[in-house]
């Protein structure tokens, strides 16, 4: 064994735990004596049951998010379609109004054209 290993061995001398360690372990022992053949603690920790809430919370949250996204999308699309329909109806009403006005003006112009002009002879008599 070389010097370095000796140094390492000295550096790693066993260390005692704090006073009263054995008593603390004895106090932590289960009440009943020698419950043999119990699964070791390591395995118990690894096999600790996961609650149903922890197991299903993530998938449930994901599914709920998807549903909310789908319904919100549908709602937005419906609102958009209603808005477009209203805009189309308004434009149609404006067009009809404009056509009515134009038609009335044309009628007036037509009546004016059809009205007979005053006779020029009467005007000359008055002048003389």
């Amino acid at each position: 064994m070389n010097d370095f290993e000796n140094r390492l061995r000295r550096a790693l001398r066993p260390v005692e735990p704090a006073d009263g360690f054995a008593e603390r372990v004895m106090r932590a022992l289960p009440a009943q004596h020698a419950p043999a053949n119990v699964v070791p603690l390591v395995i118990v920790r690894q096999a600790a049951p996961v609650s149903a809430w922890r197991r299903f919370s993530a998938p449930a949250a994901l599914a709920a998010s998807l549903l909310v996204a789908v319904f919100a999308g549908q709602h937005v699309a419906t609102l958009q379609a209603a808005r477009e329909e209203q805009a189309g109806l308004a434009a149609s009403r404006e067009l009809m109004q404009a056509l009515r006005v134009t038609s009335q003006k044309l009628d007036l112009a037509y009546e004016a054209v059809q009205r007979p002009a005053p006779a020029p002879a009467v005007e000359e008599e008055n002048r003389s």
Binding site: V25, L29, P30, A36, V38, L41
Partner: peptide
């Protein structure tokens, strides 16, 4: 260490 001795107690 406490865990280890508790396991020993169960496996005596």
């Amino acid at each position: 260490a406490q865990d280890v001795f508790l396991q020993l107690y169960r496996k005596l």
